[in-house]
Every structure is written in structure tokens, then in C-alpha cells.
Amino acid sequence: MWTFIHKWGSPKWFYSMSGKLQPWFWTVSLLLIAVGTLWGLAFAPADYQQGNSFRIIYVHVPAAFLAQSIFVSMAAAALVFMVWKIKIADMAATVMAPLGAVMTFVALFSGAVWGVPTWGTWWMWDARLTSMLILLFLFLGVIALRSAFTSRDSGSRAASVLAMVGVINIPIIKYSVDWWFTLHQPATFRVTSSPSMPTEMWLPLLIMVLGFYCFFIALTLMRTRSEILRREANKRWVMDLMKEAH
């Protein structure tokens, strides 16, 4: 167990292993997203209530799931970094934050656009959208805090603390926003709570969700590799690697 952690904690080992893993994740993610897109856009039946506007679900829900998972992964990486001082974990957390913010934005944007045919307005203070908006602010806070420090190590540790504080707060925020929303219940129905979705509707959704997750892993591996090169630029093995690569 410990040797396993130590191996993966070594930037050199991680660099070579992630280089081998990365193409697989890209391939699987591309396949899943392609199948999900085709199925969701062209083959899944239209919703009896919302018609074809319901097809937005196939980008909205995966993005929303992924955004939340990214925050949790980022906080987990932050914890690993703070407890075991494993630098790779911090590099991964660094590159996860911008993608998380992008995914949150995608979920917000698709939710807002979905609101036009469904609610007749671009923005509704719906519980899900509100939680997503708060999540976006949390991501932006982590990114801003990290870049506000002149020393990289302080920035990393400060961002880690904030990510962990944030991840404890996310369930509380979600719960309280849900409560707040039920108190001010407007006369609309929740977008994504179709009572019972038929299989040919939720199966493409599942495929898209998995595809988005693979995309996240692939992109995180790729950008973590860049981050390793950037931070280890003075190390012998990076120089050797670069000399070989002529």
C-alpha cells in the first residue's frame, strides 16, 4: 500500500504511467461522448411534456455531475497534499480547478437556456441553478486564492485549505438552498425530475455522464503532466527527457 502511494507520488513515475494511461481515457471518452451525442440528439424519443428541448439534459446533467465531482476530487487531492505532502496531488488539484469552473459554467449556461422553453425566462432562482452558481463562486475563489500568493507553496496550501472548507460546505449549501427553495416554491416543476424516465432516455444520459468523467480524467492527466514538467523543470530526469526528445 505504502509503496504504491510512494510510486504514484513520484513525479517521474506518475509522468510515465499517466502517459501510458492517457490515450485510453481519451479514446473511451471520445467513444462514449460520440455514442451518447448521437443517441441523445437523434435517437432518444422526445419528452411528452417538453418536446425536444429536453435533449439539453444530455449536456446539462453530465456537466453538473462532473462539476460537483471535480470539486470533491480537488478537495480530496488537497487533503492528500496537506496530510502526506504529496506534490502530485497538489498539481492535480491545480489543474482541476479551471476545468471545474468551466463545467459549472456549462451546467449553468445549459440550465439557463433550457429555462427559456421550460419556464419562459432565461434565469430562474431554481434550487439546482442557485447551488450551481454558488459552486462557480467557490471554484473562482479557489483559483483566485491560489494565484494571489507570490510563493507557489503558500498558494498551494492556502487553496487546499479553502478547497477542504468548501467541500464541507457544499452539502450544507445544497441542503439549505433546497430548503429555501421549497419555502419560496414558485409554480414550476423541477427540470430534471421526470417521474420515471424510460430506458431509451436515461441510457444515453448514463453514457454521456461516463464519457464526461473519462474526459475529466484524461484532461486532468494531460494537464498534470504539463504541470509536472513546469514544476520539475530543474530536475535531472526532465532535462534528460527533453534531450532525448530532440
Binding site: 475563489g141 483566485a144 486564492l145 494571489a148 479553502l162 468548501g166 449549501i173 438552498v177 430548503w179
Partner: peptide
């Protein structure tokens, strides 16, 4: 978190306000 940062005041509000929402609710 922001005490070491010069002019961290705006950053402080950015970090903290989202966390205040449950209390406000």
C-alpha cells in the same frame, strides 16, 4: 488565508460570501 496578501480585502469577500449563504438562509 488572506492576511498575508496585500489588499486582500476584495479577495476575502470572494472567498467567504458563498460560505455565508446557509447562515443567511
Amino acid at each position: 488565508l488572506t492576511v498575508g496578501i496585500a489588499r486582500g480585502g476584495v479577495l476575502l469577500s470572494l472567498l467567504i460570501l458563498p460560505l455565508y449563504i446557509p447562515v443567511l438562509i
